[in-house]
Design a protein around this nucleic acid. Structure first.
Length: 111
DNA sequence: CCCTTGACGCGTT
DNA sequence: GAACGCGCCAAGG
């Protein structure tokens, strides 16, 4: 991927922008797609840096079990869940319902 | 250059 | 299946 030529942050941003509406992915999945599967924490960090950025659907990125671990970094703690529900992604108790069904793996979908 | 900081993941208990 | 501990690695002080 040409992604490798840019900073890790930029790579994460590019992938995040490709997440389809109504689907979610995980930090680890993005990291794995970028060829740094052990750098999932960096992905989360990159998403944090993406907050001021526009057109970055950070609310579609959750952890490996579908928990909205990054909700506290949004304008309001409930914003992340609300954005997902708008896209017909059901969220219960800070977890994505039917996570396996809405999960979007870039290393597979972008293949 | 060394230390700290994380929106994580995985193996163990 | 929850709680805990450790590894991983880029960026900033």
């Amino acid at each position: 991927m040409a992604f490798d030529k840019y900073s890790f942050f930029q790579n994460v941003f590019d992938v995040a922008r490709l997440i389809p509406k109504g689907r979610v992915t995980s930090y680890g999945a993005i990291a794995h797609y970028l060829g740094a599967k052990r750098s999932s924490r960096m992905v989360g960090w990159a998403m944090n840096a993406s907050i001021p950025e526009k057109e970055i659907p950070a609310h579609r990125v959750v952890n490996r079990i579908g928990v909205l671990t990054g909700k506290h970094h949004f304008a309001t703690p409930t914003l992340m869940q609300e954005l997902l529900e708008i896209e017909c992604v059901e969220v219960k108790n800070d977890k994505v319902v039917n996570f396996n069904r809405v999960f979007w793996d870039p290393s597979i979908e972008l293949l």
